[in-house]
Nucleic acid binder design. Structure first.
Lengths: 249, 249
DNA sequence: ACAATAGTGTCTGTAAGACAATATGAC
DNA sequence: GTCATATTGTCTTACAGACACTATTGT
């Protein structure tokens, strides 16, 4: 077992490590829900303090990774989600990462972006020391307000990914409360996709997916009551064998 | 507009920035090709020097982001791809990022993982000062050798993503040389998916996708010559309306 | 002619698209 | 009963799965 690794130069690993200045590292979140008949995303106002980039601008919630508190990236994302919504999301997925010289005036930075789906929690809880937060409806692939950093791009990617996955997965169940009717679920699909969905095909598809169970309760209103359902296993996502409407185009 | 954020402490932006030690930041690559009838991935040997983690172990090619040279993460990935293969990949996609306290003994680290598809370039070019590199066939969701860091997990994610996308996209064209026959393309699909694909359905699907064009040349052999094709627009990826074989399971 | 692979055709099954029909509770 | 919505059914279409058939070259 010869170990011919005798290089008494300064090219040790430690020396080479020091050669690489480290980028700033953050985690950002695109938190979606369905509110008031629209797909909406949670935004926070950037602090208005000296030295802060984009003071007062709206941005995706997020912030620096705290290597003392965050065991890993997902834990960091969950922590920030909790801070912003006080709600544990049943669905959290990594979207990707964006990094570069230009995206933050404070220097080369990389952000790890997650997207979460939650049931409408009502007005954004102005958490204890949380900054101002608000729900914004998605229009096209973004929101009407200008966003800080490259968050317009991050949000667009999140919206595209969400729409794309909704074509062939059961994701929208996590935009609704624990219990819902099939019609409400269909509405959630339609709201995200931005187009109507065939009722009969929709129901066949959901039933075939076999991821919902009836709860012994009905939603009553001015008309025939509807069966309430809920997902069997929280967090589960079912893939459908085809996308919705491969129509001509 | 009351702004009760009067905390004349050292909580300026600059001070807060300093509060966050920065994680190590790297980019890793899963570079796939089809060689010798198998899906293979390019691995490199970790340096055998003192202080280097996992000396001599196989790993995905990658390394630290160089914030002086790399304009952004993708540029960094392309640079490393070029260094390892001297080949410009027609297909490079971000897979995701992994970060945490435990994955690198040198400290809290985050890696941005890309995967690339290239045509078989032959034996890995032992680049000038490049470390030893080798193609390893994929078995299951990984390779037979032990990998450094959490690269086993990263590779598994890459393989899963590749297989999944091959079910409903034209990705395998980028595992082949510029020109190929439909049978060769079908073989590439089968090799990645690990199961046979119906010839007739396959050809219908490819033709319907309309992303290939005939080149005025035939592949000759011991039998009936076959038409050669190539992708119309390099880098283009077509999504099929259904996945392959939604068979019973 | 024969081997071997290229390429096409035919039949079937599944699930979506379109749209109609029926069911049920509030009033 | 009427209204409004829930739920089911019927018919058509698109495309994959299975498998057979035809085409074209080298030998």
């Amino acid at each position: 077992m010869a170990k011919p690794k005798s290089k008494p130069k300064l090219s040790t690993a430690a020396a080479r490590l020091a050669d690489f200045p480290r980028p700033l590292t953050t985690v950002d979140l695109a938190i979606f829900t369905v509110r008031e008949g629209a797909l909406q995303v949670l935004l926070v106002k950037r602090p208005d303090e000296p030295g802060e980039p984009h003071p007062g601008a709206w941005a995706l919630p997020g912030g620096f990774v705290d290597i003392g508190r965050d065991r890993d990236l997902e834990a960091c994302a969950r922590r920030k989600l909790k801070e912003k919504t006080s709600v544990a999301s049943p669905y959290l997925e990594q979207l990707g990462s964006w990094g570069g010289k230009e995206r933050d005036p404070r220097g080369w930075s990389a952000t790890h972006v997650y997207f979460a789906l939650i049931a409408d929690p009502g007005e954004p809880l102005a958490g204890a020391n949380a900054p101002a937060a608000a729900w914004y409806p998605i229009a096209g692939e973004g929101v009407k307000v200008k966003l800080a950093f490259d968050h317009r791009e991050l949000l667009a990617a999140a919206v595209i990914r969400l729409r794309s996955k909704v074509e062939y997965t059961s994701l929208p169940v996590y935009l609704l409360p624990r219990e819902f009717t099939l019609t409400e679920l269909q509405r959630a699909f339609e709201i995200v996709l931005g187009r109507p969905v065939e009722k009969s095909a929709f129901r066949d598809r959901i039933k075939a997916g076999d991821f919902l169970e009836e709860v012994p309760r009905l939603r009553t209103g001015q008309q025939r009551p509807a069966q309430l359902y809920r997902v069997k296993k929280l967090g589960e996502v079912v893939f459908f064998p085809r996308t919705f409407s491969p129509r001509k185009e």
